[in-house]
């Protein structure tokens, strides 16, 4: 039963108030893209054992989507941030690396 802080409301929300949305920071490939690019966008996921960047919606709250960096093995949450963030935030990467020196973005 996870507990994630909605970056919009500032509410520490129970997992039962949230909906999961899979991996974050995917790049959309539309018409005209190669089969490989499209396959990667539609199907290929990191399925990380370790820090996973993922999408959550505060469904039973403000209704907004937000992003989270969460370790799938220990469930440690390194931060939540606005869904309108195109790249993995530097401060979250720094926070992860401060705790896990061998970690890097894949």
């Amino acid at each position: 039963m996870l507990l994630l802080t909605c970056p919009y409301c500032g509410v520490s929300a129970d997992e039962t108030e949230l909906s999961p949305g899979g991996e974050a920071h995917l790049k959309r490939f539309g018409p005209g893209s190669s089969d490989e690019d499209f396959e990667g966008y539609l199907f290929m996921r990191h399925n990380q054992k370790g820090v996973h960047f993922e999408r959550w919606r505060h469904t039973y709250g403000c209704g907004k989507w937000f992003l989270a960096a969460r370790c799938t093995a220990t469930l440690e949450v390194f931060g939540t941030y606005s869904a309108q963030t195109p790249e993995h935030p530097k401060e979250i990467i720094a926070k992860i690396q401060a705790k896990r020196s061998d970690w890097s973005l894949t």
């Binding site: 989507w65 869904a83 309108q84």
Partner: peptide
């Protein structure tokens, strides 16, 4: 409605 908000908030903001 959730699908619309997903695209508006996460892709075409």
């Amino acid at each position: 409605h959730a699908h619309m908000e997903d695209w508006l908030q996460c892709e075409w903001w």
